[in-house]
Design a protein around this nucleic acid. Structure first.
Lengths: 224, 224
DNA sequence: ACCTGAACACCGTTCAAGT
DNA sequence: ACCTGAACACCGTTCAAGT
């Protein structure tokens, strides 16, 4: 549906500069194209759609072709999750920001990216987040806690607590959305229903409060 | 392997007492037997082994027979997870226990059950925990927070924070175990390796500290 | 170098049929 | 009431083959 026909050699800019180009045109597939296609498919059809065959179909190619670029299905998962974290990892708070504000905005961006793509929150609970964007987000929080006034041990505990909180909050948020959608047929649920925009605002407000609770604990500890 | 032959009518005790027993013996399958078999299989072979066909094989029956007792695979997941939470939900702290101690021991039991069965932590991140044992654990924490001195809003935030923390901590703990096992071949990892008992003690200590951090935040808030 | 095609050993689930 | 058997529409992954 409206997909640029896969065999078209529309390669844009660098086609005139780098490659030998005499014998053969560039490959139809690239890792980036695969990641983009995977994310598009997941956004459209949800986590269950992540199969080698359907990703391949999204790209106008056969499932087995993907194995030239990734070793297994899990790699596709990891690449897609880290892909949607790019938005969150770009434009992190600078080093001049107060530590607690830096923690809060970084955590919020992390959480927002995971919940903006429900499939990402689902996968994040089952795969470790080790991609470059996830690491950049983690490192910003680690750096912020270095200014929190606590000792090394206290910082290590705080880091874990924040990581658990971000992941747990994202996971339970999307689980609650599913539950709300599934129960949406009942009268009670319908009576309690609010607009999607309001629901999102409520979710975000809860997340901020939960992070603030943790920050209060960190401050209480470093003051003690 | 060493399975009691499935067609044997060894029904134990109550065979002499209750059922009509004239026309037909009891069913080979029961929901409880299915849950027990599923847990045994998962403990032995991990989360990937949870397929209808393999659970059925574990019980000496055909995959399609399971559909008489459960509607779909997800039900098996939910039943197994709540099944292993039974140990945690039995013997919760009584109402005379101080609220913070009650929160800590209940959270610890919850976390311990999920991490004692790695598959349960994996599934818990992807399925909402709505079984009777999960609800009993949640309710004990809710009740404890009622004595924490905070307002209703503060309690609601604290409940979410604790739930996120328990789920997030269990998930990241098993993910780190997998990572440690996968990297176990490298020299660095081998040098840093500790005995399984020590590793478990470290995990548990971290969990306690993380919960204590949250409790410190709750106290700071209710005191403010 | 990069992609296809056939093949293997699986899946969940439905449904008619047996007893 | 409870279980089997056949069938459908899928899976991930390997590997030889094409270009």
């Amino acid at each position: 549906m409206a997909e640029p026909e896969p065999s078209s050699p529309r390669r844009s800019d660098s086609v005139f500069t780098r490659p030998p180009r005499g014998r053969r045109s560039q490959p139809a597939l690239t890792r980036d194209r695969i990641v983009a296609g995977t994310i598009a498919l997941l956004d459209r059809e949800g986590s269950a759609a992540l199969t080698m065959r359907r990703v391949a179909a999204e790209l106008g190619v056969h499932a087995t072709s993907l194995y030239w670029y990734v070793a297994r299905r899990e790699d596709l998962v990891d690449l897609a999750v880290d892909g949607i974290l790019a938005e969150a990892a770009a434009g992190l708070p600078g080093p001049e920001e107060p530590w607690d504000l830096a923690v809060r905005t970084t955590a919020r961006r992390f959480y927002a990216a995971l919940t903006a793509h429900a499939w990402a929150a689902e996968f994040a609970g089952v795969r470790p987040l080790l991609g470059p964007n996830a690491l950049a987000l983690s490192r910003r929080i680690v750096a912020a806690l270095g200014d929190s006034g606590g000792g090394e041990e206290a910082q290590a505990v705080a880091i874990r607590a924040l990581a658990n909180q971000i992941l747990g909050a994202a996971t339970t948020t999307v689980a609650m959305r599913v539950g709300a959608a599934a129960g949406g047929g009942t009268e009670d649920a319908r009576a309690a229903a609010v607009s999607a925009a309001d629901a999102l605002a409520v979710e975000n407000a809860y997340f901020d409060q939960v992070i603030d609770l943790l920050l209060a604990g960190i401050r209480a500890r470093s003051a003690g």
